[in-house]
Design a protein around this nucleic acid. Structure first.
Length: 123
DNA sequence: ATTCTGACA
DNA sequence: TGTCAGAA
């Protein structure tokens, strides 16, 4: 993860700051939070802490709500996004292992050596 | 002073 | 979603 991404995902903002940044009430913010739409962290004294990414998500939730969606529907939107990311991730690892297979395959062919005068254009 | 949880005249 | 109480 890049330093920039790390900073944006760092949970350091208390409720009061989030309220000002989003123009929402503590009640609404806690509601989104408790619904599992936002993943805030907690201090040792049980205070919620949000990251800049959380702020973006809260603002996004606010827009969806204004467009008429309910919490459950919004939850599904994020579930599907998560599913797509998982599949994309799986595809990435798949191509990686494929590459590794080809790599080992080539090694074997080179080992079989002498049989192939030109062993550089097979893969 | 700030935030949290639970509850609802 | 607002708001109030009692606690941390």
């Amino acid at each position: 993860m890049s330093e920039k991404e790390l900073r944006r995902s760092l949970a350091v903002l208390p409720m009061g700051t989030v309220m000002k940044l989003t123009s929402l009430t503590a009640r609404q913010i806690r509601y989104y939070d408790d619904s599992g739409l936002v993943h805030s962290e907690r201090t040792k004294s049980n205070r919620r802490l949000y990251s800049l990414d959380d702020i973006d998500r809260i603002l996004e939730i606010k827009d969806y709500l204004d467009e008429g969606m309910n919490i459950e529907q919004i939850k599904r939107v994020y579930e599907k996004q998560q599913l797509r990311r998982s599949q994309k991730q799986a595809a990435k690892q798949q191509s990686f292992s494929d590459r590794k297979v080809r790599q080992y395959l080539r090694k074997d062919i080179l080992k079989a050596g002498g049989l192939y005068p030109n062993n550089d254009s097979q893969f």
